[in-house]
């Protein structure tokens, strides 16, 4: 049976009626139209559905919408402000870290979480930090370069 949950997404309060078997990914995408959160595998293998929940990046495909009740969620749509793109987004654009772009939202959110904790990561720390997000296009080098450029 549907239940109403309340949560904060990208600093905005939401009340959403959700089914118990609805994942956070599906709620974001299909109920709220926040389609920047992608679905690549739906079982926590690829990381393209990454969102930041209470400060921690997680696979939203493995979180029930109801589990997100009362929590604070940041999706890729929340990084851009009226001042423009987030510095990490800009770095991804400028360094050529984006090819097909399907892993990009998750990759950027994992990078943001890493940089929030560790503003000057080494290359190895960056690689470890984004290792939950698979990319088939770039070979990761330019993503690593982009994250490094923001770190400095």
């Amino acid at each position: 049976m549907k239940r109403i949950i309340q949560l904060t997404i990208n600093d905005k309060e939401y009340e959403v009626a959700v089914e118990p078997n609805q994942t956070l990914t599906d709620m974001l995408r299909y109920e709220l139209g926040l389609t920047g959160t992608k679905k690549g595998c739906e079982v926590g293998d690829c990381g393209s559905c990454t969102v930041i929940m209470d400060g921690i990046p997680v696979n939203s495909c493995l979180v029930l919408a109801m589990q997100a009740n009362g929590r604070k969620i940041t999706t890729i749509e929340g990084l851009e402000t009226e001042k423009g793109m987030h510095p990490i987004q800009k770095a991804f654009v400028e360094k050529g870290a984006i090819q097909c772009g399907f892993c990009t939202p998750g990759m950027i959110l994992s990078s943001k979480s890493l940089l929030d904790k560790n503003p000057n990561p080494t290359e190895e720390e960056i690689r470890a930090g984004i290792s939950g997000n698979l990319c088939r296009c770039t070979g990761y080098q330019k993503i690593v370069d982009a994250v490094k450029s923001v770190g400095k």
Binding site: G44, I56, V58, L62, S110, G129
Partner: peptide, 9 residues
């Protein structure tokens, strides 16, 4: 175990 995203959950 797994990867950072999995470890977080």
């Amino acid at each position: 175990l797994g990867n950072p995203l999995v470890r977080n959950l």
